[in-house]
Design a protein around this nucleic acid. Sequence first.
DNA 1: TCTGGGGTCCTAGGACCC
DNA 2: TCTGGGGTCCTAGGACCC
Length: 436
Amino acid sequence: MKQFYGKKIFGLIDCNNFYVSCERLFRPDLADRPVVVLSNNDGCIIARSNEAKALGIGMGAPYFRHETLIRRHNIAVFSSNYPLYGDISQRVMDILMRLEPEVEVYSIDEAFIAFPTTKHLAPEKYAAFLRNTVQRNTGIPVSIGFGPTKTLAKIANRFAKKNSDAGSTFVIDDRHCLETLLAGLDVDAVWGMGRRHAGRLKKQGVRTALELSRRPDTWIRKQLTVAGLRTVMELRGIPCIPLEAKTPAKKSVATSRSFGRPVLTLSDLQEAVATYATQAACKLRSNGLKTTAVHVFIRTNSFKNEEAQYCNSRTLTLPAPSSHNATLIKAALASLRAIYRPGYRYQKAGVLLTGLVPENYEQLHIFKAPDKKNILLMKAVDEINQRWGRNTIQPGSAGFNREWHYRQQRKSPAYTTRWSELPIVKASFPETLSVA
DNA sequence: TCTGGGGTCCTAGGACCC
DNA sequence: TCTGGGGTCCTAGGACCC
């Protein structure tokens, strides 16, 4: 780091087309074929291989709009397989954590690292080493960007991705390199500048990241609030967003899904909401948390202009923090009954838990002793479902027919997380092989 | 027929208190 | 009967991220 010497270097390691790369791990026959992965309910395309991108398939594009193109080009299509992606992600992160003391797991497919400039004398070489290690040990290709701030590491990473010939790594290491890069970068490609911000900036004549970085602070603050100002400082090479190596405690937990078909009746909605409350409660327990507020929402399909629209939500505060299925279901269903209106075609429902507290935090209810039996019961339920599959034991209110349940027609096996779905390898010896 | 899900942070405005 | 300013807390909505 020539001009940035003496400071910290931030690195962003980003798995290339992560979900697609995970699917390809166990399907080497797909190495050169275009591949896409779909969102829940097989609705949108949320990951594309480079070949699929080249065919013009955009991020988040509705699947049904591209069906013809997909057939014509023999594109492989997968429903999302989160247990698989989560497991592979963990393996990638484990490797990074073995090599670096400070790792921030930023998302399922990205991690930041930070180290003093003196630690690794040639960042270019170190980036190549990291990349090769992850590739060799997991089979997942990554791109790596280094820069003097997290925002600039993000930008370096973007150029690394485009630069697969140069080893999929890129280092921003002096003022000239930085300014050349920013001058060629659209504002909406800057981390933290979403569509709204970028639109407003462009109206005011700010088109590139370099132009943005040269605007006065007061102007930025007014247009984009303090978060925007932080981003601009980072573009100038001044670190404002620290590395967070310790995962902060969760503040909310949500479970929501679109339905596989429109839902009209209260009883179907009740099954769905009870199911989501159960899943959310399970997430709470696995994070060692309890909730104090249960929020429920329902909504019709806003893409259907010709249909009557309705959406509503309600929050219920619990008398004492809880993570017990029955308690959360009861609260969620009470809210649902209050907001349900007949005569609409509902498309989505969800349960959001907020006001989370650690499970050992005992805000005792005046009239009720803590229910030890329930705690043991939930523990047993979680262990059984963990071992035998998610719905082995479920509350009756979550329903058994589940006609509203979302579609997932093209899911790959849970190759690495279920014994029954492990890939099978068959080896055969060629006849000419002589055994000594 | 068919358009995802799960998060965080910031701000403005209202309620409330002294 | 009339009247002030400042502070805190909470919530809803908007913006962003992957």
